[in-house]
Design a protein around this nucleic acid. Structure first.
Lengths: 94, 94
DNA sequence: AATACACTTGTCAAATTTGGTCAAAAATAG
DNA sequence: CTATTTTTGACCAAATTTGACAAGTGTATT
């Protein structure tokens, strides 16, 4: 999810992975894996990426959080219920 | 969250932590911590607990999942967005 | 076909998290 | 007061995660 978005941003801006890796001071192999959704970026990388691509950090953070949640849930009623519980807990949605 | 529910179930059924600990083959200290929300139970404990208290495993699993999600989110717009993304991903709701 | 660059993949060490234990302290019940 | 229950804190092994490194694949260019 975040991987796809970042790959899209990278390509539409004409960058190669090496440049993103340099920005974040990580290996290009790691960038490859994050774009493929094999690994998740560290939260501290969201801000520099948002600046780099001129998108809101909030957008990236939302997708990043979604990815983390997706790692622990599946498509089930329990998941649907759990999400409702969390929403109610924070009284998000109205 | 799950801790409160389990404590409620335990007390309303007149058990002490030692008995629950025995059921799960763990220390009473650990039960105390899970009831206080300091530690999360392992998923494998949900089934025996559900049987023990005669509630659905699905209920416990939902709350347990919610707890795990709550550990990685906070009350923010990003959280609200992330939950929407996850719902859409699984097309839960509708 | 050789070189060059972009990307991917496998493996691994180090750091972190998870799921507990143990001993002792504190609360509570009898 | 004393016996039982619950809580606390310090610790730990095992599982997971993070990200580096080396080596591989794909594709253009020459």
């Amino acid at each position: 999810m975040l991987g796809n978005r970042l790959k899209e941003l990278r390509e539409s801006n004409g960058y190669v992975q090496r440049e993103v890796a340099a920005l974040l001071h990580v290996d290009t192999a790691f960038i490859s894996k994050t774009e493929k959704g094999e690994k998740l970026l560290n939260e501290i990388h969201l801000k520099p990426l948002a600046k780099f691509y001129k998108v809101s950090e909030s957008e990236l953070k939302s997708i990043w959080l979604a990815d983390r949640i997706l790692k622990i849930v599946d498509k089930s009623n329990e998941t649907a219920n759990a999400l409702k519980i969390v929403e109610k807990y924070f009284n998000l949605n109205k």
